[in-house]
Design a protein around this nucleic acid. Structure first.
Lengths: 111, 111
DNA sequence: TCTATATATGAGCATATAATTATATATTAA
DNA sequence: TTAATATATAATTATATGCTCATATATAGA
């Protein structure tokens, strides 16, 4: 009986059970999008690549705070950067996640 | 000069600037989806309505923990419930957010 | 009314998170 | 090599978060 239930769950796995890795990836992804500062940074990067200083000044944030959040986003491969001299230009690096963000913003703005 | 910049931002608002309320709503929405327990609960509710006890047993969580998280989700109107005797049956109440969750799960599962 | 069952809630605790401050690193130019 | 600029990082602090334990509330039945 209990054996059957377990078996049944295995068969239903596709559309119901979440394995640990999926759970981790999904929660991390949404965690990245759950902080107002990171949302503002990602939303700003929608307009193209920007340096750390540019991001900090435009969004009225400290350089350190922006750098910390960019590291967070870079670890999740949501942003990437290229160097030009001492300046690092950051830009989006995950279309899927940016799409989720845009959907949520759109939905929030149109109630 | 500084006046022009401000003005320019007002005109670009549609596709770039996020007002505080939008920022708050978006971050709250993603915060709801950023916790593994809440993800599991919402994902389970994809299969239909379930009582608190059912959710707790199926997902191997304490009754209290489930109840707390359901209150969180109910405050954001992501779930609703109906009563039948002493039993409360919870179910999804926000198609848009459930859709965001499904997209993220789908994407994570298919790498 | 008393009891049992189902759920909600409050308090406390441990951990996570985000900002700040100070400092370190890296690149370029003089 | 020194100075200037841009960025990264470490340590600290304050707050947020999620769980557990204990208890409260609500409904139904005896």
């Amino acid at each position: 009986m209990s054996g059957e239930q377990v078996q049944e769950k295995v068969f239903n796995e596709k559309d119901q059970h979440l394995d640990e890795e999926t759970l981790f990836v999904v929660s991390q992804t949404f965690k990245a999008l759950s902080d107002p500062t990171r949302i503002r940074i990602l939303n700003f990067l929608c307009t193209g690549e920007h340096s750390v200083t540019d991001i900090a000044e435009t969004l009225n944030l400290s350089q350190s705070s922006v750098s910390h959040q960019l590291r967070f986003l870079k670890n999740l491969r949501l942003v990437k950067f290229r160097r030009e001299g001492t300046t690092l230009y950051y830009s989006e690096d995950d279309d899927h996640v940016m799409n989720l963000l845009k959907q949520a913003i759109d939905h929030a703005e149109h109630h």
